[in-house]
Amino acid sequence: MTQPDVAAVPGPPPGPPAASPTDVIHNIGYRKYDGPRLGRGYARKSLYSQSLRGAYGLGRSAKSKVLPMILLGAMCAPALIMVAVAVFTHMTKLPVAYTRYAVLLQAVITLFVASQAPQSVSRDLRFKTTPLYFSRPIERVDYVVAKFAALATALFLLTALPLVILYIGALLAKLDFGDQTAGFAKGLVSVVLLSVLFAGIGLVIAAVTPRRGFGVAAIIALFVITYGAVSSVQGVAMSQEKYDVIGWLGLFSPITLIDGFQTWFLGATSAFPNASGPPNVAAGLVYLLVIAGIIAGCFGLLMRRYRKVGMA
C-alpha cells in the first residue's frame, strides 16, 4: 500500500536519452497521513490488548516473560496432576472442588498480582509516560478502564485455565457431566469476581507507589498480612468454638472475602476453620456488598489518582 509513493521528483532532467517511465526517483520525504483516525474506542481497545499481553510479558523482553509464565505453570501444574490422578485411579470425584482451587493457590495469584499490577501502571507513572496518553484522544476513564480490564482478564486467564484443565480432565475421567458442568460454572463465577477484586486492589496500590519494588512489596504485604491476621484470629475463634465469628472475620482479607461469597452464593465448601462460612443471609449479603464496594472504591480511587497525575 505504500509502493508508488508520491513520485514528485522526476528522474533526470530532460536530457539526451529520454528517461523511460520506469526510471524514477521516489520521494521518500515526509508524507501526510490522510487515512482513518479511529477514536477513543479503538485506542482503549489497543491499550487493553497491549496491557493484557504485557501482563504475560508478550511484546516485552524475554526476561519479563519468565515470571508470569512460571506462575501460570505453577497455577496449572496441580490441576494437571489431579486430572492425571483422577483419570488413572478412576476416582468418582475430583480431589479438589472447582471453587476451592483458587483459594488453595492464593499464594501464586498474589504473586501474579504483586508482580504484574506495578508493571502495568507503576511504569507509566515512574517514567512519566502518562502525560503522553492524556495528550491524545483517550480520556482518563479510558485509561483506567483499559488497565483495570486488562489486569482482571490476565488474572482470569490465570485462574480459569486450571479450572478448564480440571473440567476437561473430569469429563475424560467420565465423571458426571451435570455435576461437573455446574461446579465448573460456579468456579468460573468465583474466579471472575476474584480477578476483578484482586486487580482493583493491586492497581490501586501500584498506582500510588511509582517505585516498582515498593509496589510489589506493598501488594504482597497487604495480601499476606491481612490473610495472616484473619486466619490467626479465626484460629482463636475456632478454639473458643465461636463459629459465627469465624464467618464474619472473613470480611477482612481479599481471599477470604471470595471464600465467604462463594460459600454463601455458590454453595461452595468454605476453607475457613470448621468450614464456617457467612453465618446468615445478612452476612452473605454483606460479603457481596463489601466485594462490590471494594471494586467500585478501587475504580474510584484510580480515577482520582489519575486526575491528579494527568499531565504533571
Partner: peptide, 28 residues
C-alpha cells in the same frame, strides 16, 4: 494499630489466656 485491633478482638473472643497471648505476641 492492626496489632491492637487484633488483640482486642481476640481478647473479646477468648478472654484472658496465656497461651493465646504468647502465640499472638510471638506469631504476629
Amino acid at each position: 494499630l492492626l496489632l491492637l485491633v487484633i488483640v482486642s478482638a481476640v481478647r473479646a473472643l477468648a478472654g484472658q489466656d496465656d497461651g493465646t497471648t504468647a502465640d499472638l505476641l510471638q506469631g504476629f
